[in-house]
Amino acid sequence: MAAGKIQPADQVRIQFRDKSEKWRFIKKYKALYLLSLPGILYFLVFKYVPLAGSLMAFQDYDLFKGFTGSAWIGFDHFKSMFAYPDFMRILTNTLLIAIYSLVFAFPIPIILALLLNEARKVMFKRTIQTIIYMPHFLSWIVIGGISIEILSPSTGLVNHFIVWLGSAPIYFMGEEAYVKAIIVLTGIWRDAGWGTIIYLAALSAVNPDLYEAAEIDGASRWKQTTAITIPVLMPTITILFLLQIGNFLDFGFERVFVFLNTLNADKGEILDTYIYRVGLIDKQYGYTTAVGLFKSVVGLVLIMLGNTLSKKTTGEGLY
Rank of each mutant, 00 (worst) to 15 (best):
T262M: 14
P85M: 11
S70I: 09
G292S: 02
V301Y: 08
L210G: 07
W189H: 03
L112E: 05
F64S: 11
P135D: 05
I97C: 00
F104S: 08
K27F: 12
F16N: 08
W222K: 13
R120C: 10
G4H: 03
K5F: 06
S220M: 08
T155H: 04
D272M: 02
V12I: 13
Q11H: 11
A181F: 12
L91W: 01
D272E: 03
L138S: 05
G156D: 05
I198H: 07
L293Q: 03
H160T: 06
P85V: 09
T68S: 14
I182N: 01
E212D: 14
T273S: 00
I281W: 06
L35C: 10
A227W: 14
Y199S: 02
I188E: 01
I110T: 05
T288K: 01
F248G: 02
I143T: 03
A177K: 15
Y100G: 02
S167E: 07
K311F: 10
N117E: 05
T226E: 11
I143C: 03
S220D: 12
W222P: 00
I40M: 11
G4P: 05
L260E: 10
E316D: 13
E118F: 09
Y178T: 05
V291E: 00
Y274G: 00
A31P: 07
A213E: 13
I90T: 02
G306E: 08
G53D: 15
S139P: 06
F257M: 08
Y199F: 08
D250N: 11
M234C: 02
L242G: 03
L165N: 13
F25C: 02
I132Q: 11
G252L: 03
L305I: 15
A3F: 14
E212Y: 11
T262I: 07
S20K: 09
E212I: 07
S101Y: 12
D86Q: 06
G4N: 10
G4A: 03
A83Y: 07
V12C: 13
F67Y: 12
H77N: 08
G317D: 06
G187P: 00
I148S: 07
R255M: 00
D60A: 11
F25N: 04
N159L: 08
Y287G: 01
F58Y: 02
L151C: 04
L35K: 10
E316C: 07
D266R: 01
